[in-house]
């Protein structure tokens, strides 16, 4: 176990340069803007924003780039990410207000994306070049080719516009009233979980009803990548000699696949988690926008449309940090699944 701890410590050290790099990239993009435009990055209220020249002087926005970078970075590290004009609140407040929506969608979408992708990839590999393989591959290619925003629109037009089953937004008006009432206790900000903790089934069902389409949409467009990796890694593992060895022991074909091959084939899939997170972020920007779920992605999209520079840059920085942390977790998981990694 000691080796696992040192391994984690080493990986933690390794993410520092990448995080610094990401911050430099974001800062470099910001430097394209004029000092006047950049002033919004340093203030936390609209009143302060009106005194543009004082801000430029105070934060040295006319000084050399490297000096500005350190001023900016220390600001960022203190949680001062500027003022979001699209939301009329400081950027950091936007994060603290909006994260539950995005997290709620993500924690339901991610497991389904993985499950569907792994299952399809497995079927596809086992029945290589036979009908199930072709069907699974076509499904994956179709999902891969669908524009996220279009599939969302089609889902809404059918299931909301026509059938009226799954409305957009996070909650219906009645549920909203309950959530806003004084009896409601907010534990996490995730309505499905809070509803269960409050013992309110009505809100729970309403929240699930609103989550269904966004999650479905993310699963449709998101599983293709995992399916492909699973398929090729299954095919590779099926060719390994330990499969023959297991067969020569008399292990049943089903057990060979489920016990021996799948666990090995999942190892490359685990490394995909970073890519999955990146895909989810992108998917959330679009899906939240179409389904009017006021989360981080919705905010980012609207900020971009309204040229709200601090918000977009902060969101980009945030996704970069999330990606790096996701990869860190993956590496630790990887060491757990694959005993060979731990010793290195």
């Amino acid at each position: 176990m000691g080796s696992l701890a040192t391994y984690i410590a080493r990986r933690l050290l390794l993410i520092i340069p990448t995080l610094l790099g990401v911050s430099i990239l974001i800062f470099a993009i910001s430097m394209v803007f004029t000092p006047e435009q950049r002033a919004a990055l340093y203030v936390t209220s609209p009143k302060a924003a009106s005194k543009i020249y004082q801000i430029i002087k105070k934060y040295g926005l006319d000084r050399p780039a490297h000096e500005q970078y350190f001023t900016w970075l220390s600001n960022v590290l203190r949680g001062n990410l500027g003022y979001s004009k699209s939301m009329n609140i400081p950027v950091i407040r936007a994060f603290t207000d909006l994260w539950p929506t995005s997290v709620e969608i993500a924690i339901y979408a991610a497991p389904f994306i993985v499950l569907v992708g792994v299952k399809l990839g497995k079927i596809s590999a086992i029945y290589r070049d036979k009908l199930p393989d072709h069907i699974a591959r076509v499904l994956a290619i179709v999902g891969w080719s669908l524009p996220t925003f279009w599939s969302a629109i089609i889902l809404l037009a059918i299931f909301y516009g026509w059938l009226g089953w799954f409305p957009p937004g996070r909650l219906g008006p009645e549920a909203q009233a309950i959530v806003r009432s004084s009896e409601w206790v907010t534990y996490t900000g995730l309505y499905t979980i809070d509803a269960l903790l409050n013992g309110n089934l009505f809100v729970f069902i309403d929240a699930v009803r609103h989550l269904f389409l966004p999650v479905l949409n993310l699963v449709i467009v998101g599983n293709a990548g995992i399916m492909r990796v699973m398929r090729s890694s299954m095919l590779e593992e099926l060719n390994k000699e330990y499969v023959l060895a297991a067969r020569s022991k008399g292990v049943a074909e089903r057990d060979i696949i489920n016990k021996h091959v799948t666990r090995n084939a999942l190892i490359p899939v685990v490394t995909m988690a970073g890519v999955l997170v990146a895909g989810l972020m992108t998917g959330l920007v679009i899906t939240e926008t179409v389904f009017e779920l006021k989360g981080l992605g919705y905010w980012a999209a609207h900020a971009a449309e309204q040229l709200d520079i601090p918000s977009v840059l902060a969101f980009a920085l945030f996704t970069g940090v999330v990606f790096v942390i996701a990869n860190l977790i993956v590496d630790v998981l990887y060491a757990y699944i694959d005993p060979r990694v731990r010793l290195q």
Partner: peptide, 23 residues
């Protein structure tokens, strides 16, 4: 399958490859 491993069994050229790395 009932014969494999019980009546007739096999030893492989490359022991490293014949063993499942994760078990």
């Amino acid at each position: 399958r009932k014969l494999r491993g019980s009546d007739i069994s096999r030893i492989f050229q490359e022991p490293k490859a014949a063993l499942n790395p994760v078990y």
